[in-house]
């Protein structure tokens, strides 16, 4: 996970998750802050990809880390902290989307990039493909999008995704298949 690795210099002797979780459970807020620094990046990106707006993503991540702090006592396996974060973040995002009015056009700002307009052709094409992919992701159902993002972008296991969404591995594969087919259709103009 990029977010953690780049902290490396400041935390030369970075402690492993299980150690930090155990210390946090005893009320060590500095240990918990290290966990927050380590995983806020990937959780923020996951949330942004699922909910589509940076404001909602920030709120979701803040809620997730506060909830995680409160529930450290319920985590049976200290080393499982990251998987637990993925589950909590995904569910928090799905709840945010459920609370949104159906089809309400919430402002989605994920791809307001400040990149300059003049770019080499290849870069323009890549950027156009990315934009098309982001647009197509919005047209998936929230659960399909969550399944696809967790699997294809964050590399989580089918098992873990099934547990997160509260369904079977088979159902996850089905949602992924539909998502992939729908996305591939949108990418067809670039083939």
């Amino acid at each position: 996970m990029g977010g953690g690795v780049r902290m490396g210099v400041a935390e030369a002797a970075a402690l492993d998750d299980a150690t930090l979780v155990a210390r946090s459970r005893d009320g060590d807020m500095r240990a918990y802050e290290q966990l927050v620094r380590r995983y806020q990046g990937p959780m923020y990106r996951l949330a942004l990809r699922i909910v589509g707006s940076s404001g909602d993503a920030e709120d979701a991540v803040q809620d997730v880390f506060l909830t995680a702090w409160r529930r450290l006592g319920q985590l049976h396996d200290d080393a499982a902290f990251l998987g637990w974060l993925y589950r909590t973040t995904t569910n928090q995002c799905l709840n945010v989307l459920r609370k949104r009015k159906p089809h309400a056009d919430t402002e989605l700002d994920e791809h307001e990039s400040a990149e300059p307009r003049t770019r080499p052709d290849r870069a323009v094409e890549v950027s156009a493909q990315l934009d098309a992919l982001r647009d197509a992701l919005r047209d998936l159902t929230p659960e399909q999008r969550a399944c696809w993002v967790l699997r294809e972008v964050h590399g989580r296991s089918y098992d873990e995704i099934a547990e997160t969404i509260g369904t079977t591995q088979q159902a996850v594969r089905g949602r992924l298949a539909r998502a992939r087919a729908q996305l591939a259709e949108v990418m067809a103009p670039w083939r």
Binding site: Q40, E152, A184
Partner: peptide, 27 residues
Amino acid sequence: SLLVLRAATEELAREEVEPPSDLVSRI
């Protein structure tokens, strides 16, 4: 189409959108 999708997905995964700098302190 799937090859294009796969390439675009790799781009998406490579993107390192950073959270706001004050998110840790807010949390």
